[in-house]
């Protein structure tokens, strides 16, 4: 059985249907990428998985639970954590407070244990642990958003555009950390406009266009596909 199994998911904002029937699965230990242009519905999909949006129809099965109607905080408890689009760190809280909030559903000793690992993965955060998160650079805030999600010790890590607005050198660092996270056995579902980086990391990928999945293949095959190359890997990407 897949760790995550989404069937015919439809999500709407009022009359606007943003997801028009998405079916997708993620196996334990996999890294799966979702590619798609701005407005395709990637963030809507991620927010639905985390319970921030309620599906109009369709099912979301995670580890045997039907989480389509579950509350967002309960979903975190089941082992799904998200680093949201735009990072959304708590700007007037310190780096350390942000991290500890990531482990809100866990006990303090467990949290301290994971915090050590997060600081090893992102030593920059350790240097800045007493600083307000709002004073960090964009790259550091992204590290914090990912580290904060890891504090929940997720089985499934959701990453919504971890490279958004970051300089190429910073993006490289972030993706190298993601490879470490993957090596530690965490299953990752990553949404990206930076298709090249995402496909290099991923095992498989889906391509989303205006609320529908239009391609699904191994990352290698997607990278080689002329259509994907034209739309997502051309110049400027």
């Amino acid at each position: 059985m897949s760790l995550l199994e989404v069937k015919d998911l439809k999500v709407a904002y009022g009359h606007i249907e943003a997801l028009k029937g998405i079916s997708l699965s993620v196996e334990e230990g996999e890294v799966v990428a979702i590619l798609g242009a701005n407005g395709a519905g990637k963030t809507t999909f991620m927010r639905s998985l985390s319970g921030l949006l309620k599906p109009r129809s369709g099912t979301i099965q995670y580890d045997g639970h039907d989480i389509g109607k579950a509350r967002a905080d309960a979903i975190v408890g089941l082992g799904i954590a998200q680093s949201p689009e735009g990072r959304r760190v708590f700007g007037t809280l310190t780096v350390e407070e942000n991290l500890m909030l990531g482990a809100y559903t866990r006990s303090r000793p467990e949290a301290l244990e994971t915090r050590k690992q997060v600081y090893e993965l992102f030593p920059r955060l350790l240097e800045r642990k007493a600083q307000m998160a709002g004073t960090l650079s964009g790259g550091e805030q992204q590290m914090l958003a990912i580290g904060r999600a890891l504090m929940a010790k997720p089985r499934l890590l959701l990453l919504d555009e971890p490279s958004l607005g970051l300089a190429p050198i910073i993006v490289k660092g972030i993706f190298s950390a993601l490879r470490d996270i993957r090596a530690s056995g965490v299953t990752i579902l990553v949404v990206e406009q930076n298709a090249r980086m995402a496909l290099k990391l991923a095992d498989r990928g889906y391509v989303l266009e205006v609320g529908r999945i239009v391609h699904e293949d191994s990352a290698k095959a997607l990278m080689a596909s002329p259509e994907v190359q034209e739309a997502y890997l051309g110049k400027g990407h």
């Binding site: 927010r47 985390s50 949201p84 959304r88 760190v89 708590f90 909030l101 809100y104 929940a152």
Partner: peptide
Amino acid sequence: DAARLMGIN
């Protein structure tokens, strides 16, 4: 919303 993503009710 970010608070909900932390598991906060």
